[in-house]
Structures are given as structure tokens and as C-alpha cells.
């Protein structure tokens, strides 16, 4: 089992400063970017909801037509006269 080396006692302060500043800058950047994207998302959600509404209405009409056609075809196969 190899033993680990002793901890180096004189890490350059530049390196330590860079590590901490990178960490804190990352936290700030992540938080800022999250709020920025969340704000943009409001408008995108509105736009997509409109599109989904139109799609639902269109699909409802198409679905009713398809169902009627299917029932008619089934009725013809079964020999039932549709009312």
C-alpha cells in the first residue's frame, strides 16, 4: 500500500486566491444565469401555451371527424345502418 505524500505547506497564495475567487465567481454566475433564463422563460411559456391551445382545438376537430369515420366504417362492416 503506497503511502500518500506529506501535505505541501507553502501553497502559493495566488493559487489559493484563484481557487476561492473561481468558486465565488461561479456561484454568482450560476445564480445570475438562472435568474436570467427564468425571466426569459416567462415569455417563451406564454408563446408555447398559445401554440398548444391552437393545436388542442385543431386536434379536437380532427379527432371527432376520425371517430365518426371509424364508426361508420365499422358499421358498414357489421351491417349496421347508421342513424
Amino acid at each position: 500500500m503506497v503511502s500518500l505524500p506529506a501535505a505541501k505547506q507553502n501553497i502559493s497564495p495566488l493559487i489559493r486566491f484563484a481557487r476561492w475567487s473561481a468558486l465565488l465567481t461561479g456561484v454568482a454566475y450560476g445564480a445570475w444565469r438562472y435568474s436570467y433564463l427564468a425571466k426569459r422563460e416567462v415569455g417563451i411559456q406564454q408563446h408555447e401555451n398559445e401554440i398548444k391551445e391552437k393545436y388542442k382545438q385543431r386536434m379536437a376537430v380532427v379527432k371527432v371527424e376520425k371517430e365518426n369515420a371509424e364508426m361508420k366504417a365499422l358499421g358498414q362492416e357489421a351491417g349496421v345502418v347508421p342513424k
Binding site: R19, A22, L23, V27, A28, Y29, G30, A31
Partner: peptide, 16 residues
């Protein structure tokens, strides 16, 4: 590279 990874770790903390 390690300093850049600290930045990425901080970003993960900031964005939750």
C-alpha cells in the same frame, strides 16, 4: 484546469 473546475462547482451551487 483545477481552478476552472472550482468555477464549474461554484456554478453548480449557484444554479441549484
Amino acid at each position: 484546469a483545477e481552478i476552472f473546475f472550482w468555477f464549474v462547482a461554484g456554478e453548480c451551487i449557484g444554479k441549484g
